[in-house]
């Protein structure tokens, strides 16, 4: 006898009848991994915000080239100094500000664009929907790094704003597809039909009823996207088209250090470690978010 039926048919009612469940944040923080990741991210964010105010050296400040260049980590310079005698700690902190800000802004932009596009496609008729999604497919078909290289090498000196715009404008295709799929799935739900039967307009339906649903998966994607964009920005800066020196970013600090990996490994190591840590935390946080949001949709009996 082959059986593939969920054996707990009757029991699912239990969850339904249970007392009021914990709130979303409480569920999210229930997982120790998520707590740790969130804590680490908040600490890093606090550090890059506050440390520049108290650190003895400025990130661009060139100390005595003769005595202080390529100094290994010590009390005065916990992360050492680079080839032009700048304090690596000061640069990593300043670079973190830029890297995190660029990533956050561009992910926010991509999420907003993608959500709007996806909602529009999902609620549109078959033809408009097909058209909008083919455009997304086209966007996904172009290699993102290549596109960014081209766009960012056009101006002589790409500004941070351009970098954010470029990263945002090339990062929303996946979000749009995700949101559109979610809306298509939801729009046949009885409660959507009920809202239409009440005379709710399409725009109100999208804002009031559908947006809260699609925000959940968008949030998860955004957390993952955060990690991606930080790496991407680092890569672009490493290639020289991202954040322009002398302004620091984790990517261009790592590049500064790559030529000197033998002599002064600390230059690349510190920003590299920060990068890995932040990306890891983003991934763990995304997983935690997904689990917490999945638990919100209680099974039906």
């Amino acid at each position: 006898m082959t059986t593939s039926v969920t054996p707990l048919g009757d029991v699912r009612v239990v969850a339904l009848e249970a007392p009021r469940p914990r709130s979303g944040p409480a569920r999210l923080l229930a997982a120790p991994g998520t707590r740790l990741a969130l804590g680490a991210l908040l600490t890093i964010a606090m550090c890059v915000l506050v440390l520049p105010l108290v650190l003895p050296h400025a990130p661009h400040e060139q100390l005595d080239l003769a005595t202080r260049a390529l100094a290994s980590p010590r009390a005065a310079h916990p992360f050492g100094t680079d080839a032009v005698a700048r304090d690596v700690l000061a640069r990593v902190v300043a670079g973190g500000r830029v890297s995190l800000a660029v990533a956050a802004a561009s992910v926010l932009l991509a999420s907003a664009l993608g959500t709007a596009w996806g909602l529009a496609a999902g609620l549109a008729g078959a033809r408009i929907d097909a058209l909008l999604m083919r455009l997304v497919d086209a966007g996904l078909a172009v290699p993102r790094v290549l596109l960014l290289l081209v766009v960012l090498s056009l101006p002589r000196e790409p500004s941070l704003v351009l970098l954010v715009l470029a990263l945002g404008a090339t990062g929303w295709f996946g979000v749009a597809r995700l949101v559109r799929t979610e809306v298509r799935r939801l729009r046949d739900a009885d409660w959507v039909l009920a809202a239409r039967a009440l005379g709710t307009s399409r725009r109100r339906l999208a804002w009031r009823q559908l947006l809260p649903h699609v925000l959940a998966p968008v949030l998860v994607t955004a957390a993952l996207g955060m990690g991606n964009v930080i790496v991407l920005e680092a890569g672009l800066s490493w290639l020289g088209v991202g954040v322009q020196p002398p302004r620091a970013s984790w990517g261009n600090i790592i590049r500064d250090g790559t030529d000197l990996l033998q002599a002064a490994p600390w230059i690349s190591l510190a920003p590299g470690a920060c990068l890995v840590l932040v990306v890891l935390c983003c991934t763990v946080l995304a997983d935690g978010l997904r689990d917490a949001l999945a638990a919100r949709e209680l099974p039906r009996p």
């Binding site: 707990l8 048919g9 009757d10 029991v11 009612v13 239990v14 009848e17 009996p301």
Partner: peptide, 8 residues
């Protein structure tokens, strides 16, 4: 009725 434990 549902939830009475019959299927279980």
């Amino acid at each position: 009725e549902s939830g009475c434990g019959k299927s279980l």
